[in-house]
Design a protein around this nucleic acid. Structure first.
Lengths: 172, 172
DNA sequence: TATTGTTATACTCTATAACTATA
DNA sequence: TATAGTTATAGAGTATAACAATA
């Protein structure tokens, strides 16, 4: 609760900058791969992966789908619209709640994910995992998992109004 | 060199997804903070930080400035233009090479960085560092540093034409 | 009244290609 | 010929606010 924010030391700063750069570089490369091999943006891939790999039914409500992928509702509507236009998902009124919309992945959607996945994995391996010892991957996992849990639990300290909480990733 | 890409195991996948989500969440929060407290985008902040905190002279060539921050030359021109319009940097022909342009941070630019830095540090602390033990921060740093080094050295395997190599962060 | 989702709109950012000028 | 940087342009994505429909 000190209000004189002490500067970060070299290790803290290094961890932060390395995190940002590594993630940025990785994401940029993955985005290219997804675009070239599957004509998908990263967000679109995430949505398809949630539906195709995570959901047992291949369906999810818009609201649930938004969690962890998008920061605004209209953003999800936009992306879902693109996926629908590309025939990769369908949208239909939710069975139980007339206000809701259920998004369902199509066979073409599943095929698209399958088409893109090997290349995706390859990028992650080549770019991120390759130089790391197994033990390092394990610590990386553990530490980032702590951070993630904390971030999900702690909404921005600065009392910003909550937007969308973000949630689990595909368990592929 | 196996061409049948074996899938990633749970730990590898977890490390990847956690990395993406943590970085995304952190970046999103930092971007809000920078926008609100300093009317800066993250890229603009990075550029100012390079000039103000890294460079002894407060000046850098466009090309050097691009490294590590931006993926296209026109993108840098655009951002530098915004910073110049906001009086945070100046642009002038390079002394030695008539083709080049030297970007220099102004006093107002330095002031802007100073204004924004405490809040920036606070976000990183609260959101990323707070739940981690010192030892975890150290391993995180070490592991990500390996990954970063590897990424910088290894251009996209898939033989993509090189865009811009990316480089060091502010040593603030 | 609160929630779900869409629409309209405006804006920011990015990238490609064509171009100018200097090395 | 190659490099530095800009410009024109076009497209993708995001967010806010207003709105309609249902709970």
């Amino acid at each position: 609760m000190s209000d004189a924010a002490s500067p970060l030391d070299a290790v803290e700063l290094g961890a932060y900058f390395a995190l940002i750069e590594v993630a940025d570089l990785l994401r940029h490369t993955v985005e290219q791969q997804l675009r070239e091999e599957g004509d998908l943006s990263y967000v679109q891939f995430q949505l398809l992966a949630r539906l195709g790999l995570d959901s047992p039914t291949g369906s999810e409500r818009m609201t649930d789908l938004a969690d962890g992928v998008v920061y605004s509702r209209s953003g999800l509507t936009y992306q879902a619209g693109l996926l629908e236009k590309a025939q990769l998902v369908t949208r239909a009124p939710a069975a139980d709640d007339e206000r809701g919309v259920t998004v369902t992945i199509t066979d073409a959607g599943r095929a698209r994910v399958a088409k893109v996945l090997p290349g995706h994995v390859q990028v992650i391996r080549d770019l991120l995992l390759q130089p790391l010892a197994r033990e390092q991957v394990e610590t990386l996992h553990a530490v980032l998992e702590s951070a993630r849990e904390h971030m999900r639990a702690a909404p921005p300290r600065s009392a910003r109004q909550r937007r969308r909480k973000r949630n689990p990733e595909p368990t592929a």
